[in-house]
Design a protein around this nucleic acid. Structure first.
Length: 96
DNA sequence: TATCTGACGATAG
DNA sequence: CCTATCGCCAGAT
């Protein structure tokens, strides 16, 4: 039987996930960048939705706001994860 | 189909 | 540095 491919239906969600999974350790990207890379420029908000809804196997901590701000509501955990990836974190912001 | 929501982005004060 | 407002898009009800 052919393998189930029920993971390529949701254009947006799948595309976003692929982009995030393509990130390497210590690599950062903003929601807007993810959306653009996924082929949906301007859909930064929708990207946030995907990250929040789909958790597990997805390095969401490598995604920050364009402002360099960390995820509101998870700043503590986010900061922790980033530092584990050798990323310099200044308070609730990532050091450029 | 209409309306609301949100782990956004940019600008203004 | 902070909050407020508007524009954007996709999903949920």
């Amino acid at each position: 039987m052919k393998p189930v491919v029920a993971d390529d239906f949701t254009t947006f969600e799948t595309a976003v996930r692929k982009v995030i999974l393509s990130l390497g350790p210590g690599d950062l990207i903003s929601y807007g960048e993810v959306a653009a890379e996924a082929g949906y420029p301007g859909a930064a908000r929708a990207v946030g939705r995907v990250l929040r809804d789909s958790d597990g196997g997805l390095p969401w901590w490598r995604v920050v706001t364009s402002n360099g701000r960390l995820v509101p509501g998870n700043e503590a955990e986010h900061s922790r994860r980033l530092q584990l990836e050798d990323v310099i974190v200044d308070g609730n912001r990532v050091r450029k």
